[in-house]
């Protein structure tokens, strides 16, 4: 599992994360990520059979909220910090389906 990441791996995950990366950056990143994954690799030899994964720092259950409407319209305040809005809508480059 801990075979080194290839350039293609780096580009694939940059793509997944929507981060533009050029070849030179991909190369530098590849070296850094591989050093980090070498560090991580020590974890993989550990026998964890039968160990329940720990997703939270506490063993409690989700609290439930009553089904009440508590929010008011604040779109003007929220949209005052938006990069592009018109008629109450956030604008993005044309989405092609």
């Amino acid at each position: 599992m801990s075979q080194a990441l290839t350039q293609d791996d780096v580009k694939r995950i940059a793509r997944l994360a929507r981060i533009e990366i050029d070849d030179a950056q991909a190369q530098a990143t590849q070296a850094q990520l591989n050093a980090i994954f070498d560090l991580i690799a020590t974890m993989q030899a550990v026998n964890t059979d039968g160990i329940a994964p720990m997703a939270h720092a506490q063993e409690v259950y989700q609290r439930l909220r009553d089904d009440d409407v508590t929010e008011t319209d604040r779109h003007a305040a929220f949209q005052s910090v938006a990069p592009a809005v018109e008629n109450g809508l956030y604008l993005v480059p044309k989405v092609i389906e």
Partner: peptide, 30 residues
């Protein structure tokens, strides 16, 4: 706690949680 009513003017029923402002958190509706 935003209303789910249909047909409101755009983004008037989109709270800080719904528009994912930095720092907001979900709380589940019973």
């Amino acid at each position: 706690g935003s209303s789910t009513a249909f047909g409101a003017a755009p983004n008037t029923q989109a709270s800080a949680v719904d528009i994912a402002l930095p720092g907001v958190l979900p709380v589940l509706n019973k």
